[in-house]
């Protein structure tokens, strides 16, 4: 196509194809490693894809905007994937119906714990008020959390950072923590992952067990709702 390899690179790096390919290839590779290690928590494919792609962008001096122009096609699928959670929910409906009451109680307790724990810890560590407000909605999915953060006049990009960190941390520690506590019921394990670590926790739950994934998906969806209502109330009370 061209004698100069650099101009080929310039051409490729401007097209969505390259960044879409980079995203898929990297995830496919990290997911293969995760499978090889029998889904070891530390081999989390999301975590490893992030730093590999981040490093690649840094080395090729590519802006995030350029990368996202290609990767947005993957990002778009988040919406349809959330809608698709209705399918495993429907398939497991009797199992879900049997656990409605404990789920509602756990939702209330878990959602409140997520907000209060991070606010109190952040305050104990002496963080300024604006940062504490940005961290408060960290346990819900990024779109919702950033909306909440905005309405509190906090920093939505810091909120996005804390949401992703929360998801990855939750996905890594959920398995060892549950094993340590001796919790073997996949419904409870999944539900906790969905409350504490939103979609990334749910993705982890689906890797481990379908029932865990279903309960994580329910928890994530319900928590998006409850947290957006609870955060403004909780912070006014906690940060008076």
């Amino acid at each position: 196509m061209n004698d100069n390899p650099f101009s080929l690179w310039v051409y490729l790096s401007q097209s969505p194809l390259l960044w879409l390919t980079v995203t898929l290839v990297t995830y496919a590779a990290t997911d293969a490693v995760s499978l090889k290690t029998r889904r070891h928590p530390l081999a989390n494919p999301v975590l490893h894809s992030l730093w590999i792609i981040g490093l690649f962008l840094l080395l090729t001096n590519t802006s995030y905007t350029t990368y996202f122009a290609g990767a947005q096609f993957v990002h778009f699928l988040l919406g349809p994937a959330t809608v698709a959670l209705a399918v495993p929910l429907y398939e497991n409906r009797t199992r879900v119906a049997a656990a409605v009451l404990p789920m509602l109680v756990a939702l209330a307790v878990g959602s409140l714990t997520a907000i209060v724990s991070v606010v109190l810890l952040a305050r104990a560590f002496g963080l300024p008020r604006e940062i504490i407000l940005s961290l408060a909605p960290k346990s819900v999915t990024a779109g919702v959390a950033m909306g909440v953060s905005e309405s509190l006049h906090a920093d939505p990009s810091l909120t996005a950072v804390s949401v992703i960190l929360t998801g990855i941390m939750g996905a890594i520690i959920v398995t060892p923590l549950m094993n340590f506590a001796g919790i073997t019921d996949f419904r409870g394990r999944g539900f906790a992952a969905g409350i504490a670590a939103h979609g990334i926790g749910t993705a982890r739950a689906f890797q481990v067990d379908e029932v865990a994934g279903v309960f994580a998906g329910i928890a994530m969806s319900l928590n998006a709702l409850v947290t957006s209502l609870l955060v403004p109330l909780a912070v006014t009370y906690l940060l008076r």
């Binding site: 990297t26 792609i53 981040g54 990368y67 996202f68 990002h75 992703i164 689906f206």
Partner: peptide, 13 residues
């Protein structure tokens, strides 16, 4: 599902 968080996550980096 995990892969779908990668584009937003890279922005975080």
């Amino acid at each position: 599902l995990g892969m779908l968080f990668v584009p937003a996550g890279v922005g975080v980096i």
